[in-house]
Nucleic acid binder design. Structure first.
Lengths: 162, 162
DNA sequence: TCTATTAAGGATATGAAATATCCCTATTCT
DNA sequence: AGAATAGGGATATTTCATATCCTTAATAGA
């Protein structure tokens, strides 16, 4: 069970978009080049963000993507779910129904206890992701990245932002 | 990102094994029939439990599986990891290395902040699974399942346990 | 108005992983 | 001796992630 690499891509792209000056857009092409990713496929991930309403887009030259909300109002969970989907990671196939001792026409009361426990763990994962804002990530990146690399990257992006 | 259905199978099978009297074994055939699962493929899941040391096995007629430890000393995480593997659900491909502004020969200090956050959520999921013992599941099942179905199921298993 | 550039999305190809079955071997019980 | 079992290798099938290509509509700038 491994998350799509598109999740990683989307998170990094959002981090870049978070640093864009008000009203500017950044294209798939620039984001793909900056991260060394296949442009066409990255485009699918960005479309997922767009469909989820996390980013705004505009067409034409100087078009591209920008965040739809301030970075403090975007959580990791928003981004992960936009790309990976909101479905739970544990699917209950209700195999207890196959119990040969089960009376004919018997109907289970609630969700299977196995599923209930697995879903609680799933929810703990989501809760953790919900607690991290995109702004937390940019703050962590600011500490992690040397000042000169941070600066040159920012300028690289600005040159390409429409 | 969805867990293998083998995880569900293994959890249900362990719940059955937890009810087995001391020293008795239950075969793949019986476990597959009880849950309505493909015997050959379920066998692979049980082999994973065996390789992880969670169950003991014995050969021959009246052979099969039993728990290697008391149900209170087996956690959900033990079982999930035995089948699904211990790898993290988020893989960091370190795409920050592709930053075109990155100086030649520059080496990242620690793990990528994005990965660090995703791994924390992953750990929260594991922590939750680690906190649930197999005995907790059997207790929940005892409350969930009507007494007569519980009893007839137990007898069904006993008849087939070697 | 014309041209270049963009996002959106459909179609399709490729690769890896989950799912499933089959068969052979060694072991153990009756 | 014979039957039933776990273990495990080989292989097929299906599903999904990954990836590319192409068309369309919108937009900016010349």
């Amino acid at each position: 069970m491994i998350l799509k690499s598109q999740v990683e891509w989307a998170l990094h792209c959002c981090a870049i978009l978070a640093g864009l000056p008000e009203g500017r857009y950044l294209s798939t092409k620039a984001l793909a080049e900056f991260h060394g990713l296949p442009k066409e496929y990255l485009s699918k991930a960005l479309q997922s963000l767009s469909q989820a309403g996390l980013v705004d887009t505009t067409l034409g030259p100087s078009g591209g993507y920008r965040l739809a909300r301030p970075p403090a109002e975007l959580t990791f969970l928003d981004i992960v779910e936009a790309v990976e989907g909101k479905a739970r990671t544990f699917v209950c196939n209700n195999i207890r129904e196959n119990n040969p001792c089960r009376p004919q026409g018997y109907c289970e009361s609630g969700p299977c206890p196995v599923a209930r426990i697995m879903w609680e763990a799933d929810e703990a994962w989501r809760e953790k992701l919900r607690a991290v804002r995109l702004s937390d990530l940019t703050e962590a990146l600011a500490l992690d990245i040397p000042a000169d690399l941070w600066k040159s990257s920012f300028e690289w992006v600005l040159e390409r932002a429409g």
